[in-house]
Simulated scan of single mutants.
Amino acid sequence: MSTLTPQQLVAAQQANLDAFFGVTNKAFAGFEKLVALNLQVSKAALAETQEIVTKAISAGNPGALLALQASLSQPAAEKAVAYGRSVYEIVSEVQSEISAAATAQGEKLQQDTQEFVESLKKNAPAGSESAIAAWKSVFSAANATYESANKAAKQFVATVSTVQ
């Protein structure tokens, strides 16, 4: 029967750690983009508030103050929509990168599992055909479930993306 060597175990663990830290780095990069966006928006809002307060103080009559207030509503709504769009783009990009990494990791796991079962099959003692067939059946069912779940998740993300 085939056994995993310590080098194979170390390589597998290293690959898993690399995948984990790759996903973590992508998440932090997205977080950095959100922080930068929020700092930019906050800085712009502070400058605009200063300008608005200065104009409000210098408005000599109530009519000018009302006109100033009315002129601010449309740009504020447009800025809110632009901010929401920017957040959505950042989150979508990170989600897409993480999804791609997870898909690649899942495909690698499927390949490794299939290779392991084939190795078991080659090195199995006589009379263990039914056990190997059972293993193959279990892994085939797991792969089919994974494929089905992956397809459903991609359809869900596509549907949510079109709603946005």
Rank of each mutant, 00 (worst) to 15 (best):
D18E: 12
P75D: 03
V163H: 14
S137I: 01
F31K: 08
A124M: 15
E32H: 09
K108Q: 15
A27F: 03
E89I: 00
A29D: 03
A152W: 00
A12N: 10
V94Q: 06
V23A: 05
K79D: 12
N143C: 02
V10W: 14
N16D: 13
I52M: 09
A133S: 09
S161P: 07
T145P: 01
Q74N: 02
A27M: 02
A158G: 12
A149M: 06
D112L: 02
K79R: 15
Q7A: 15
N38E: 07
Q105M: 07
E32A: 10
A100E: 13
Q74C: 00
K151L: 09
F21A: 01
L37H: 07
S148W: 01
N25G: 08
E115R: 12
S2Y: 12
L68M: 07
A19Q: 14
Q95M: 11
K151Y: 06
A59W: 06
L109I: 06
N61F: 11
A144F: 07
Q111I: 04
A102Q: 14
G84K: 13
I57A: 05
Y83C: 04
T113D: 01
Q14W: 09
S140W: 00
A153I: 00
K121T: 08
T162R: 15
A131C: 09
F139P: 00
K79A: 11
L46R: 14
L17M: 13
L39D: 11
Q111T: 14
E32R: 04
E89S: 03
A153Y: 15
F21N: 07
A102D: 07
A102L: 12
A27P: 00
K154N: 10
S119K: 10
A59C: 10
L68P: 06
E129L: 02
S99H: 05
S119H: 10
E51K: 06
T145Y: 07
A82L: 07
G30A: 04
S2D: 05
T54S: 14
N150Q: 13
E93F: 00
S99D: 01
Q8F: 03
A104Q: 13
A149V: 02
T113Y: 00
A44C: 09
A158H: 10
I132Y: 14
A104I: 03
F156D: 10
V23N: 02
A12L: 12
K151S: 11
G84R: 12
A104F: 07
N16F: 14
